[in-house]
Write a protein that binds this DNA or RNA. Structure first.
Lengths: 199, 199
DNA sequence: CCATCTACTTACCGAACGGTAGGTAGCAGC
DNA sequence: GCTGCTACCTACCGTTCGGTAAGTAGATGG
C-alpha cells in the first residue's frame, strides 16, 4: 500500500482511534474498542498499522506536525516581534479549538510516566522544535535590541511559552474559557510590559 | 485500623506504589508489581486499600496536600509581594527536587485522558486550591496598587503560574536543569518588569 | 482459467489483569 | 482454654488484552 494513497479504512481507523485515545488514553483504549468503532476486524487494523504503538505514533506525529506548520505560518504573518508572538499564540489557541483531541494527546503523552507509553513512541524532538521556533524569535528580538538581554533567550522563551501553555492546559483540564486572539494579545502585552504598576 | 497509626506494611506499600506509579503510570503498574516490590500478597494490600484507585488517590492527596502546605509556609515567609511570589515559586522547585515522583504523579494525572483514570480519582479542587492562593496574592497586590489593574487577577495569576509551570514541566519531561531559587527570582522579575527593552 | 495481489475475515492464542473466597498465625482479653 | 480480632496468606476467578494463524472474496493480468 502506497503511504500517500488515500485509504478510507485506514482513515476511519485513525479517526476512531484519535477519539478513543483522547478520551481514554493509550492504555485505556483497547484495539477491540477501536475496531468496534471503526466497524472492521483486528487483522484489518493490523493490515494498516503494525502495532498499537505505531497507530498512536501516527496520530501523535499528525498532531505535532500540524501544530508546527501552523506556528510557522503564523510567524510569517506577523509584521514585527510583537505581532509574530501574537500570531503564534493565537495559532496555538485556534489549533486547540479545532483539534482539541490532538492537543490532548500531545499533553497526555508529554506528561505520562515514562513506562506508561511503549518505548518506541517518539515526541520529544517535535516538542523541542516548537519551543525552538519561539526561542529563535526571542533571540532575534534580543539582537535587534527590542528585548532585554539581562535574561537568556531560553528563559524569556520559557516565559511566554509557559504563559501560553497555562491557558491551553487550563482549557484541557477544566473546559470553560477558550483562549482567543484577545488572550494571545494580553499574554504578549504582559510578557513585554510586565505586571508591575508604573509609579 | 486507625488511620493515624503508623503501619510499616501500609507505608511500604505506599512507597513502592509511588515509585512504580511514577515510573509506569496508573495503568502500567499492576497490583502484582506493587505487591512483588513490597514483599506482601495481594489480599494484604487489599487489607489496607480498598482498591487500586484508592491507593493511587492516597498518593495523589499526599502530593497535593504537601505542596499546598509548602506554598502556604512559603507565602508567610515573604516580606512583600515580590518576596512572597519568589518564596512560593522556590517552594515548588524545592518540592520538585525532593519529591520528584509525587510531582510527576500530579502532572500525569492532570493531563491524563479523562477515561484513563478511574472515575473516582479526585484532584481538580486541590489543583485549583494552589492556583487560588497565587491569584489571591495577585489580587491583594492589585488592591495595594503594586500590580496593574489593566489585567484581571486571573490573567496575571495564570501568567506567573504558567512561567513557573514551564520550568517544572521541562524538568519532568527532559531532566537536565533543575529550577532553583535563582530561577524563581528571575521569573518574578520577568513577571513584574516584562521582557521589553527600555528605550 | 489460473495466479497473484489487496483488503479484508473468523477463530484463536497465551498472558495478564483487578479483585475475591476461604483460611490461619499470633495476640490480647476474659 | 476459648473467643475475637488483626494482619496477613494460598489459590483462584472471570475477563480482557495485543496480537496471530489460516483463510477468502474480489479484482487484475496473462
Amino acid at each position: 500500500m502506497e503511504p500517500n494513497v488515500v485509504n478510507a479504512t485506514r482513515d476511519k481507523i485513525l479517526a476512531i482511534a484519535l477519539r478513543l485515545f483522547a478520551d481514554r488514553g493509550y492504555a485505556g483504549t483497547s484495539i477491540q474498542d477501536i475496531v468496534d468503532g471503526a466497524r472492521v476486524t483486528k487483522p484489518a487494523l493490523y493490515y494498516y498499522f503494525p502495532s498499537k504503538a505505531e497507530l498512536y505514533q501516527a496520530l501523535l506525529n499528525r498532531a505535532h506536525d500540524e501544530r508546527f506548520r501552523l506556528m510557522q505560518a503564523a510567524s510569517a504573518r506577523g509584521k514585527d516581534l510583537s505581532g509574530k508572538l501574537e500570531e503564534i499564540l493565537n495559532a496555538h489557541f485556534a489549533f486547540l479549538k479545532s483539534h482539541r483531541e490532538l492537543v490532548g494527546l500531545v499533553y497526555a503523552t508529554a506528561f505520562a510516566a515514562r513506562g506508561e507509553m511503549p518505548k518506541e513512541i517518539r515526541y520529544l524532538d517535535k516538542c523541542q522544535r516548537n519551543f525552538d521556533l519561539i526561542r529563535d524569535l526571542i533571540r532575534s528580538g534580543q539582537r535587534a535590541g527590542e528585548l532585554k538581554r539581562a535574561f537568556t533567550a531560553e528563559h524569556l522563551a520559557r516565559g511566554i511559552f509557559g504563559m501560553m501553555n497555562i491557558h491551553v492546559q487550563a482549557e484541557l483540564v477544566q473546559p470553560g474559557q477558550k483562549p482567543s486572539r484577545k488572550t494571545a494579545r494580553q499574554i504578549v502585552q504582559l510578557f513585554l510590559e510586565g505586571a508591575a504598576a508604573r509609579t
